[in-house]
Computed example of a mutant assay.
Amino acid sequence: MIIVIFVLVLWYGGLFFQSFFLHRYAAHQVFTMSKTMERITFVLTWIFQGSSYLSAYGYGIMHRMHHAYTDTEKDPHSPSHDPNMFAMMWKTKTIYQDINLQRIDVDQRFTKNVPQWATFDKFAGSRFSRLLWIGLYILFFVYFATAWWQWLLLPMTFLMAPIHGVIINWFGHIYGYVNYQMKNTSKNLFRFDFLMMGEGYHNNHHKYASRANFGIKWYEIDMTYLIIRVLDAVGVIQLKPIKVRK
């Protein structure tokens, strides 16, 4: 039971910071926070993503590219141009690393105001950091695993962020339903997104990329957005006002 709880904490903890910090803050900037809070969130993202830590800078730029080039050959991750999910994941990893290591030129529209903490990212994304987390996960399983099947969950702890990414970027462009007919293949994976904390409302998000709440229909409950509302209410972050189109 302890192992299952541990994996769930890593799943939803890592997913929350990927959605809250990397996606909605770094890429889309639907809210603001102080520099101190930003640094604290960098560290919390590292703690919960562990061995699969993603930098806000690399993720933010790559995700903006995804929106600009959705389902074209320039899309960093698209089922329309990658033969399978593993090929897509490898392509995504390569582009992500190229951005972080500044091996490619990136259009300035993708880099504007994307948060960056280069010294921390250098450590948090290092081989040493990733192997340290992997070692800690293995030790945790050694001490608390009580059945052989629990060891099958161990690889998930190593690769949480890529697993979250492939669910949205592969399956979220193949399976599900749409609220909006668009010139891309984005889908809403679930009517109630219990698994991805709101990230599964991918079609809604592609329609309204700068909207903090990914849910549209009454039953599309965005758990990450509810937490964002609480953090805004207590002053930890500041939600940006919604722009009404005339």
Rank of each mutant, 00 (worst) to 15 (best):
L231R: 02
P155S: 08
W170Y: 09
Q150A: 02
Y219L: 06
L195T: 12
F214P: 04
H202P: 08
H206N: 10
M223Q: 09
A145W: 07
K187S: 08
W149T: 00
K183T: 13
E199D: 15
E199I: 12
L153P: 09
L154A: 07
N203W: 08
K207L: 07
L226H: 07
W218H: 06
Y201Q: 09
D193W: 11
A147T: 10
F171P: 05
K207M: 12
M197N: 14
L159A: 07
D193L: 10
A212H: 11
L195D: 10
F192L: 13
Y177C: 03
G200N: 10
M160K: 04
W170A: 05
W148N: 02
L154T: 00
W149H: 09
H164A: 02
A209L: 12
W218I: 04
G200A: 13
G198W: 11
F144M: 11
H164Y: 07
F190R: 02
N184R: 00
L152S: 05
Y180I: 03
L195C: 13
N204M: 14
N169H: 15
L159K: 00
H202E: 08
Y208E: 13
G215W: 14
G176Q: 13
N184H: 05
R229F: 00
T224V: 14
I228G: 01
F190Q: 06
I163P: 00
F171G: 08
Y225D: 10
R191D: 06
W170K: 00
F194N: 15
A161G: 00
I221Q: 08
T185A: 04
F144Y: 15
S186P: 06
T185G: 00
A147D: 14
H164D: 04
E220S: 04
T157F: 07
A233T: 01
I163M: 07
K187H: 11
D232L: 03
S186T: 14
N179H: 10
D232H: 11
H206K: 05
I216G: 06
A147F: 06
F214V: 07
A212P: 14
A145Q: 10
W149K: 11
P155I: 01
T157M: 01
K183M: 02
Y177E: 10
A209N: 06
N169C: 03
T185D: 12
A209T: 12
H202D: 09
D222K: 09
L152C: 13
K207V: 12
F190I: 01
D193R: 09
L159E: 03
Y143M: 06
F158A: 07
